[in-house]
Write a protein that binds this DNA or RNA. Structure first.
Lengths: 210, 210, 210, 210
DNA sequence: TATGAATGAGTGTTCATTCAT
DNA sequence: TATGAATGAACACTCATTCAT
């Protein structure tokens, strides 16, 4: 259930205007983190791209890191929606179909929210982003774990958790990698990713001998 | 193989003393890039941890970026050695044994040179590091591709390249991920990584029907 | 006349407070350029003498050079005022009286704005100052040329321009020279300067034979 | 006359090799002061253009300023030679011819030794150069004063000194100014300079009534 | 409440000068 | 004596953050 997590906002934006502003600021942060990276993007740039004053930004976010936090939380929320819509664990599907559906959904999400990538990047390089990314990762892992256990109640829960983590980490890397590929190569890598996950799951949790 | 690339050093350190100093500076950079990230690590910190003066650092490296470059090049060199020593494609080995040997070798390398991780991280976040990391990745991919083709001459070369890329990307992420795990979990994840690669390769390039 | 030139200010100081601050910064720059020279004066010194923070200075001026530019522009403006007040070409005056009036006016200006001197100094030594100084020189030359042509319509315009340039250059040097003289010698040199200009003009553009 | 002045050299270069090296260093300093200005030229650049080591440079010159000093002194020496060769006060010449000869000689010198210009520039802007330039100026003034007194024994010695100073200062500025002019304008300005000096002297020290 | 002017610690980098070899 | 590697104070400039209005 993709919990909302510790409140990073100084003041809850009660009025619609304020909520809109917070949203615009996060949009701007998302864009600039992607364009320039977390470190190179400045808070003043973010504010001004959001048509907000820098003072306003700091009204809502105590510091730069909180922007990353909030972004991660927004992603978590939106992932929640995505999961409910598109990651249904339709029991009539084969495992292949399920993987396909999930990976496709995540690919769409990644493309729509490219800052997921720098956010999900691990600890090194930008410690500021670690906890935000960690949360996001855990939200995804939790969902996959649930699906896995639903479909394969025979599997050791610990193994399922591990497999879910692996699946998410594989997906993350490859989707990140895809950004660097020329457009025409993207479907190729995407297909390969699905193969990798299927291959992995098949080996890691072989169907119980009939 | 694993070519050295453009010279980033202002002055070639002819004397042993100077070479040692360059080496110490790179060690310090490695440490601090890992501890704080590329952006947050300052050149003055690096110099002082290397027991060198800041002027000395700039005697050898024209700017901060060049440190990352040089680090990547040093890694490429050392990987060259590692490959020759430990990544032998012994024909008597099974595929499993080969994967095990390679992944283990890389794990050791990763642990010894943890800055490989931020260096190998893709483009976003620190454009400065992109080309350095890209080189490193290509060096690894090239080696795996060679081994793959040697063992499986029946496979389409393009597929082999793709598989090599996949294998490296999977390995990179997971080894990076491992850093974040508590020590006792590391062997578990490492084993899982091997399973993933084996599972993937088995699915992607199934042995020719007999 | 005495056109304002390209805007060197990052942000137009709309409020009176800001305008005052810009002014104080320029005053400080003026003083320090005179005391230490352009290169030796540091932007931090300038800011702190202006009781402004260094950040504030860079809020208004994109870089050190822009301070010199802005100073030159301020001089050009003030010279505009000076010219209108004190360099009137009173037709009842003799040439001697006119020269006296102009040189005196410039002397006063020079004393009040001693950084005119380093600014007007030619290209070598501080390329940064060249264009700023060149503008200032042209403003002065233009004014003298106008007066010359008004009083001596018989003279070839090109000659008048040349004479105006000469007059300004002579004046500049000598007024600069004067700074180095002990106080009691200054009127002497000033008188000599007037003699030089009068002597020059008399020789360069002798009155038409009646 | 044209005295050598306080020794700025750490060690008298007794051997021919050393003298040559000092000379090459000064040549390099001259070039770079002209190309980049005194401040922007670095001592390392100077040493390396002179094919000397930086240590060698500091063997002969205690600091950067001393290079300017020594340059000025070298100019003074060479001016001494120039004066003896080309600034002869031939009694058969008219004043015009004399001025022409002197100004021409100085113009040649200036062109051959363009660093005279930044050196002679007054105190402000580069205090380091002040005393060096001052010495050079005094050497020139002294010579002109002598000539003036020889030709016009009727003139008050103090007036002659003043006139000599003026003549040198006018010449200096205008010759400096000439550098900034396009080549084809240079003879024009040069002629104008002669006119200015002649006009000035005629006015400042009119020939005794017959 | 919202603004954006103001702050100043901290950054990468340079360069005059020293001194071990 | 000559070298050039080494030094580190100092510089121009940035940017996260504050706070008076």
């Amino acid at each position: 259930m993709l919990s909302p997590a510790a409140q990073p906002l100084r003041r809850a934006p009660k009025q619609a205007r304020a909520q809109q502003r917070v949203s615009r600021i996060l949009d701007a942060a998302e864009e600039l983190f992607v364009e320039l990276g977390y470190d190179a993007a400045t808070t003043n740039q973010i504010a001004s791209r959001a048509n907000a004053s820098i003072g306003s930004l700091y009204e809502f976010f105590p510091n730069k890191q909180a922007l990353a936090q909030a972004l991660a939380e927004r992603y978590i929320e939106r992932l929640g929606a995505l999961i409910e819509e598109r990651m249904v664990n339709d029991p009539s599907w084969t495992g292949e179909q399920l993987v396909d559906s999930i990976v496709t959904a995540l690919d769409v999400f990644w493309r729509r929210h490219p800052a997921t990538v720098p956010l999900l990047r691990g600890s090194l390089g930008a410690p500021a982003l670690m906890s935000a990314g960690e949360q996001l990762r855990m939200a995804l892992v939790g969902h996959i774990e649930t699906i896995l256990l639903e479909r394969r109640p025979d599997v050791d829960p610990e193994r399922a958790l591990l497999a879910a983590e692996m699946a998410i980490d594989l997906t993350r890397t490859l989707l990140e990698r895809i950004q660097a590929e020329p457009t025409h190569r993207r479907p190729v890598v995407l297909r390969e990713l699905k193969i990798a996950i299927i291959g992995y799951l098949r080996t890691a949790m072989p169907p119980p001998a009939r």
